Amino acid sequence: GQVHVGDTTYHFPNPEEARKFAEKAAKENNLQVTQHGNTFKVE
C-alpha cells in the first residue's frame, strides 16, 4: 500500500499498515483520508 501525504509518498508492504498510518496522519493533522484501491491519500 502507498500513502500520499502532501508531496511525500510512504510505501508499506501491507495495505492494512498503510491504512492505519493514513488514518493516524489524518487525525493528527485534521485532514481526510481518501482510498483508491491500496493507495491512500491524506489531504
Rank of each mutant, 00 (worst) to 15 (best):
T39Q: 10
K24Y: 11
A25Q: 12
Q2H: 13
R19E: 06
G1Y: 15
N29V: 06
F21Y: 07
N38A: 07
A18W: 00
G6M: 08
E17A: 10
V33F: 09
A22Y: 01
N30P: 02
Q2L: 14
A18T: 00
G1E: 02
L31K: 07
V5I: 15
A18D: 01
H4Q: 14
Q32D: 06
F12H: 02
T39E: 12
Q32W: 10
E28W: 07
T34L: 08
F40V: 07
G37N: 07
E28V: 09
E16V: 05
T8W: 11
H11Q: 08
E17H: 04
K27N: 09
Q2F: 15
H36I: 14
E28N: 08
F12D: 01
E17S: 07
V3F: 02
K41H: 15
A25E: 10
L31N: 05
H4D: 09
T34P: 01
K27Y: 11
D7C: 09
F40P: 03
A22E: 02
V42G: 03
G37S: 04
Q32I: 15
T9I: 15
E28L: 11
T8P: 02
T8F: 13
E23L: 10
E28R: 09
V3R: 00
V42K: 01
A22T: 00
K20L: 13
F21D: 03
N14F: 05
G1N: 09
E16K: 04
G6F: 14
K24D: 10
T9D: 04
A26S: 05
N29D: 08
H11K: 07
H11V: 10
H11W: 15
Y10S: 03
L31Q: 09
A18R: 00
E17Y: 04
N30V: 04
V5W: 15
R19N: 04
E16R: 03
H36S: 11
T9Q: 07
F12K: 01
A25M: 15
Q35V: 12
H4M: 14
N14Y: 05
T8M: 14
Y10G: 02
E23K: 04
A22G: 01
F12E: 02
R19T: 03
P13S: 13
Q2C: 11
N29S: 12
V5T: 04
P15K: 13
V33G: 00
G1S: 14
T39N: 11
A22R: 00
L31V: 07
T34W: 08
E16W: 07
L31F: 08
Q32N: 10
K24W: 14
K27E: 11
Q35C: 04
G37P: 01
T8A: 12
V42M: 04
N38W: 06
K20S: 09
L31M: 15
T8V: 14
H4P: 01
V42D: 03
G1Q: 05
Q32M: 13
K41E: 09
Q2N: 08
R19Y: 08
A26Y: 02
H4A: 06
N38Y: 07
E23P: 00
F40R: 00
E28I: 09
F12Y: 03
F40E: 03
G6T: 04
L31R: 05
E16I: 05
A26E: 02
K20V: 12
Y10H: 06
V42N: 03
Q32S: 13
T9K: 08
K41F: 15
E43N: 08
K41W: 15
V33D: 01
P13K: 11
E43R: 05
N29W: 14
H36P: 02
A26I: 01
N29Q: 13
E28C: 08
E16A: 06
N30I: 04
Q35Y: 07
A18S: 01
G6E: 06
E23G: 02
V42Q: 03
H36W: 12
A22K: 00
F40M: 04
N38M: 05
F21S: 02
K41M: 14
E28K: 10
E43V: 11
T34R: 07
V33R: 00
T34V: 12
A22S: 02
G1W: 15
N29Y: 14
R19A: 07
E16Y: 07
A22F: 01
A18C: 02
N30H: 10
K27R: 12
F40S: 03
V3G: 01
P15N: 08
A22V: 02
D7S: 13
Q32T: 14
A18I: 00
A26D: 02
A18Y: 00
V5E: 02
G37F: 05
V5H: 07
Y10T: 03
V33H: 02
P15H: 11
V42S: 02
K20R: 12
G6A: 07
K27M: 13
A25W: 15
P15W: 14
A18P: 00
E28T: 07
A18E: 02
V33K: 00
F40G: 04
K24I: 11
R19I: 05
K41L: 15
F40T: 03
A25S: 08
E17M: 08
A26G: 06
A26P: 01
K20Y: 08
V33A: 03
D7P: 09
P13I: 11
P15Y: 14
T34Y: 12
T34M: 08
A22D: 01
V5S: 04
R19P: 02
E16M: 06
P13L: 11
G6H: 09
P15I: 15
F12T: 02
L31H: 06
V5Q: 04
E28Y: 08
F12W: 02
H4R: 11
A25P: 00
H36V: 14
N30D: 09
K20F: 08
E23V: 09
A25L: 15
V5P: 00
F21L: 00
F21N: 02
G37V: 03
H4F: 13
G1H: 13
Q35S: 07
K24N: 12
T8Q: 14
K27W: 10
Q2S: 13
H36Y: 13
F21C: 03
T39Y: 10
V42I: 10
A18V: 00
K41R: 14
A25Y: 15
F12R: 00
K27S: 11
T8G: 05
F12A: 01
